[in-house]
Design a protein around this nucleic acid. Structure first.
Lengths: 105, 105
DNA sequence: CGCTATACATCATATCACGAGGTATATATA
DNA sequence: TATATATACCTCGTGATATGATGTATAGCG
């Protein structure tokens, strides 16, 4: 898939992966990958960005001797998902413009 | 509209604007703007990029004393538009993932 | 002991949208 | 006449960002 096209949906995909339950980096990657490929470095960059934007919050838990960082979607994150649905409508009209050509076909 | 989401469609929108007839910078902006806002600097950057990628070709014509650069979509550009239609299908399944949440809702 | 999976993180690089700024001409307006 | 606006092109610096490469550390398996 085109790299540029991915940019707009990557963040939202990660938020979507947290919609139903808290999760951690390694698991998020596995969940999202069947839908959209992403590398580890990308995922952790996104998680950092979403945390800075307060769309997710973090809590740490020890699991089998290792620390695991669990991510939780905040109300702001939920709002972002709602926003995306609106943007999708816009995207659809752009798509129509693209397939139809600039004017009458 | 989200800046990242735009990235994937901007190039394709410009190609779409050239689908039916050759056009020039100033006119392309006016044609595309009702669908998707873009600045002049962005447009000329895109035109340069598409030209480098041989998706469009350029010819110059004098018009009312001034030079105008007309852009023509190449077969490679047409192919890019077709490709985009395929990518759109992928995008749709990503959208479904996002609105449904990671698993059963 | 070596390998793989799990789990996290950082850095350098390349790509890119955009605002700010620049050049120049034609036409409308004050 | 002066000035503003529309047309038409272009460049540069900046900030955002996806990704590969790389590093650290533990658990479990053969």
């Amino acid at each position: 898939m085109d790299a540029q096209l991915k940019r707009g949906v990557l963040d939202v995909c990660v938020l979507a992966a947290l919609k139903n339950e808290d999760s951690y980096g390694y698991k998020i990657i596995k969940d999202v990958r069947p839908v959209l490929s992403l590398s580890e470095s990308t995922l952790y960059t996104i998680l950092k960005r979403l945390e800075d934007a307060k769309m997710i919050s973090v809590w740490t838990k020890e699991f089998e001797g290792r620390l695991r960082k669990y991510y939780h979607i905040t109300s702001k994150g939920i709002r972002r998902l709602e926003e995306f649905k609106e943007e999708w409508k816009e995207l659809n009209s752009i798509y129509l413009y693209i397939v139809r050509g600039s004017r009458y076909e």
